[in-house]
Design a protein around this nucleic acid. Sequence first.
RNA 1: GAAUCUAUAGCUCAGUUGGUUAGAGCGCUACAUUGACAUUGUAGAGGUCAGAAGUUCGAAUCUUCUUAGAUUCACCA
Length: 920
Amino acid sequence: MKELPKAYEPKKHEDKIYKKWEDSGFFNPDVCIEKGITDKDAEAFSMVLPPPNVTGTLHMGHAAMLAIEDTMVRYHRMKGERTLWVPGTDHAAIATEAKVEGILIKEGMPKPKEELGREAFLDRVNQFAQESHDTIVNQAKKMGTSLDWSREAYTLDNVRNKVVKQVFKRMYDDGLIYRGYRVINWSVKGQSTCSDDELVHVERPAKMYYFKYNKDFPITIATTRPETKLGDTAVAVHPEGKYKKYIGQEFEVENVGQNGHVLKIKIIGDDHVDEELGTGALGVTPAHSMVDFEMYQKQKALDNDIGMIQVIGEDGNMTASAGSEYAGKTVKEAREKFVEYLKEQDLLEREEDIVQSAGTSERFKDVVEPLPKTQWFVNVNKKFVLEKSQIDGIADGAEVTLKELMQTVVRNKQINILPERFDKTYFSWIDNLRDWCISRQIWFGHRIPVWYKGEEIHCGVDAPLQSGGQAEGEGWTQDPDTLDTWFSSGMWTFSTLLNKEIKKGESLQDWLARSEDFQNFHPTQVLETGYDIIFFWVARMILMTTYTLGTIPFETVYFHGLVRDEKGRKMSKSLGNIINPLDMIEKYGTDATRLSLIIGTSPGQDMKLSEEKVEGLRNFANKLWNISRFMLMNIDDVRVDVELPEPITDKDKFLVQWLNHIVFDIGKLIDEFKLSAASDILKNFTWSVLADDYLEYSKVEKNQQLFNYILNTILKLWHPFMPFVTEAIWQEMYGDESFLLVQKWPKVDLELKGNEKKINEYRSFWIIDALYKHINMQKSFYKVSSVKRIDIIVYLLDIKNIEDIVKRNIEIIRSRAKLGEINIEIVNYDKFKNKLIGPSVAGSIIVEFDLSGAIDKDAEKSRIEKEIDHIKPYVLAQTKKLSNAGFVDNAPVAVVDAEKKKLAEAVEKLEALEKQLGSL
RNA sequence: GAAUCUAUAGCUCAGUUGGUUAGAGCGCUACAUUGACAUUGUAGAGGUCAGAAGUUCGAAUCUUCUUAGAUUCACCA
């Protein structure tokens, strides 16, 4: 017999247990195989951790992700699968660089990059990344994550760098990566490009100006950005619209915005122009608008070069091309000056207040300036040959585009997205996808593996060699830019599984071939992440993996919702509503924190979290502890491998069939990714069925071996959700050489599951439970102290065959309901004529209480009346339903029978109640 | 402008392919409590399932519309 302390104190156990788990090596599938815990031929289950930013700290979003993933991983490990969960961190290029730059500036270095130079600056960033890396890793451990730390990866380490370069080169050779002069999103503040997906649209008030370039120009245009009009080269009108006649004409427009600024404006036709909007004509500024640039390209393809004038520079100021009066002015100053000029010249027809949404850089927060620049792009529409394909519907050597690859694997369900509705989001994103700008003008990241020497370009994994074979060839300089961070994270599922030993000159194919982890664990089974990075990351992984390997990166994508506060608002510093997971862990324990992020949530649906919820689950963890404490006090000798004994008593049979059912359901639900439902059902079973009912009944009569079996099973079932408290109990029971972490998941007794007759027999205890609850309720209703041992007579109506079971369990009832004498009589209903009795139990048992005149007649009367009011309409409705030919003819027989039965029971009950009322 | 999601008890949510007299937890009310657990137990009050129309023998569940809220994408001349 063991005795646990009275309450579970998470802090006393969690860190100690985590350390034991880590030391055991069981997070590593190789160790599990070596120690004979996992069969080497067992099915694989692998997952990568969406790498948190190195400079980040744990927030509720991470906590939810870690809780959900760890629950899946632990379940599969216990099922005996070769289970691998790979950890890692993301260098988060711009975010990290900007953070370190900010720190250095604060420390009194106004221009860190200039002052330190590339190498020294990067040293500082790397140093910072290393330090904060440990923070996030330790926080992940606090969550109880069973990640295999021996395989930890980093998006910017040597292995990842090598594979990034290899893939870049292959895409370059396939013509999918190209260098082009195009309009990109430029962050003046960050002095870098950003991709379309990194823009956040912000609503802000603006003014729309309607004007003509000059008095002689025939068409009025409208714009919110007059200053860019200094760089207009065309006016676009609808090809069939009111300005049709001007199409093809060219105007030399003088004095635009200032004396002497001449613009050549061609009138072009374009479908994009909407006659109803603005003036029905728009000034085309190819250098400072994506849409205008596309028109420019379209015209060029038609051999009609309309030209391009860049009037805003990378510093955010007007260029010399804007004219001498504007050059060097800020955009704002230029706009004011231009509008002033229009007014003076009487060219401004009207201005209008509007709300416009402006694209801002997610990282730098400033409004981006579209401008033309030579950058590296991934062409998503170009055909290439996919040599080897394991994608359904695409053969080896087929010609495809990246877009097609991304579409195919989701459409053919090789990749399943949960919840399914994100399919639509995914497809519509791909439909509108433009070429992906991958070069960034920052230093922290994978440097573009391209070297220039005059007009020559060299793309390769290594720098171009001189003929002598020394290092970097003379005269060659590497492109200074680095790659978009998502370019490297796009390879995360396979780049983390590569053999860490790098061989110079080796092809990716050979490298993959000698990477055991890759052979064993790719594709991964599940990718679990927030839906906010579906485009950034999920889509890019699909792109990179299908391209590089001709296969999928993962089979299922599971999106969790965003964690919001109890009012459904986003958690933010300014609102002061942030719930810090580490505070919750400190206060209520990791298990409660984890479960609060799983129970009551569903995929893709934002979840509201309150401290009260975590608190409630802390209570549950303690309940589980005390359930175990109680059971252990009643077991002389606990055994890990205890067998399920053949249940003898009615209550044991009842519990056994229910437990069997639960084991089946939990497994099924987890397999279907319904973690919330699984934990909810399990919690309900544990608290009300096991603790409140079964264990209470067991105080009268115990079965040690069954206790042992139930306890083992319940701890196993809970382990994936609440790893610490369950492991703590387990090790109290079996010593710290035994790990619940790697115990075998409980099995469903299929013989019992399939045997309906046996199940019915095992369930028959329900009538005893109902009888007990009925007695309890009556005592409560009549305000009889629950401990007062009153006498009762139990009348069994001789219509149901329940005599045996009631007699067998009479002691259980007496003891639990705290009764005195119980007499059992088998009677006919007539016995109750003109008598005051309570309602029946299931229409077959009537209980008479000896209250020695304690009954309040009025109270009883109103109670019965209330019950009659409740049941009467039901009987009427039910009768009507059953006399409706439409129902009886159309509904399935089983349904009709069930309804008939329900009616019969209700009628019986109603009659009894009416009789009682009459006797009052 | 387009798409998607949400609307069920005071609060947070369940409600499986349409067959419920619509459930749980928290909160509230009353009572109980000396060895598993006050981080507890028992009982109770509380809902015309956002609104309207339709399909059906039957709708919280399916369809359409309306209202409110949220998110994403696009446009922004």
